[in-house]
Design a protein around this nucleic acid. Structure first.
Length: 264
DNA sequence: TAAATTTGACCCTA
DNA sequence: TAGGGTCAAATTTA
């Protein structure tokens, strides 16, 4: 295990510890609600940090590998060719100048960005349809980020999510990945974000779109937040981010490991 | 009723 | 001309 994996593992263990504390807390104690909230935030922070480390690892590895085609390898690749044009197929999306590809047992719907589906097609020689998404801020902020989601294997289920282009919208800078709120509004370190694009400087989402995005993430959190009964599904369920699940799987991470197991 | 999704048609390249 | 990507009207959803 290299140092990146070690760091990611430590973060996952830390997150697990917080989750365990969360599970054993007495939910009938009203005055512990703040503490539970802090613990939940800690869990999200830890997972965000682990994901950041993992993505950094992938990017470093990409710097050292360059011959694979986008359809042949995973999870992340890049190549340099001309970008797709506005309408119709000028060139394959997979041959566009900037893309990242992930494969996971579950489709990645909640990756911190707000996407709008604009098409779905049956692909030749594939049993499954491919869905096309573009950034919800394509019009508002001229963001050209896109992604494709396709089921590539039935049993066990395997989904390929390919990201094209970079997010030039600014919403993700404030709310991407996990909508972690900190008690200190000045605490910018509280937002640990995973980005697939370059940050921009002009942040001016419309009030509606911002509210919508907040609601979406809030609903997502409410759906999946603090559900002790979900703890047993830790390593494979939707309760956990699919990226984290993927990382856990990649490292053969056992959710019942202790720090002692890690150090040995 | 506005926003999001679906789906058939269209466009373009190989 | 087949195949893949996108558009936009129709439909669904909240």
């Amino acid at each position: 295990m290299n140092s990146y994996q070690q760091k990611a593992m430590e973060k996952l263990l830390q997150g697990r510890g917080c989750a365990n504390q969360l599970l054993v807390m007495d939910h009938t104690e009203s005055d512990s609600s703040m503490e539970r909230e802090d613990l939940a935030k800690s869990v999200l922070h830890c997972f965000s940090d682990a994901l950041s480390i993992l993505i950094d690892t992938n990017e470093h590895q990409d710097d050292h590998s360059n011959n694979s085609s986008p359809q042949e390898s995973s999870p992340v690749l890049e190549s340099g060719r001309k970008p797709p044009h506005k309408r119709g197929r000028k060139t394959s999306m997979a041959e566009s100048s900037d893309y990242h590809r992930h494969e996971s047992p579950t489709p990645i719907y909640h990756d911190g960005f707000l996407w709008r589906k604009y098409g779905q097609k049956q692909i030749k020689e594939s049993d499954h349809q491919r869905s096309y998404y573009k950034c919800a801020y394509t019009k508002d902020q001229n963001c050209e980020a896109k992604k494709q989601v396709q089921k590539i294997q039935h049993s066990p289920p395997l989904y390929s999510t390919t990201y094209f282009g970079q997010h030039t919208c600014q919403l993700h800078q404030a709310y991407a990945t996990f909508p972690i709120e900190t008690s200190d509004p000045e605490d910018h370190e509280g937002s640990h974000m995973i980005r697939f694009g370059q940050p921009n400087t002009s942040f001016s989402p419309s009030a509606n779109s911002l509210r919508q995005h907040q609601n979406q993430n809030q609903n997502h959190m409410e759906d999946e937040y603090m559900k002790p009964e979900k703890a047993e599904e830790w390593s494979s369920s939707q309760w956990m981010s699919s990226e984290v699940a993927h990382a856990v799987e990649a490292f053969e991470f056992n959710p019942f490991w202790t720090s002692h197991d890690l150090s040995s």
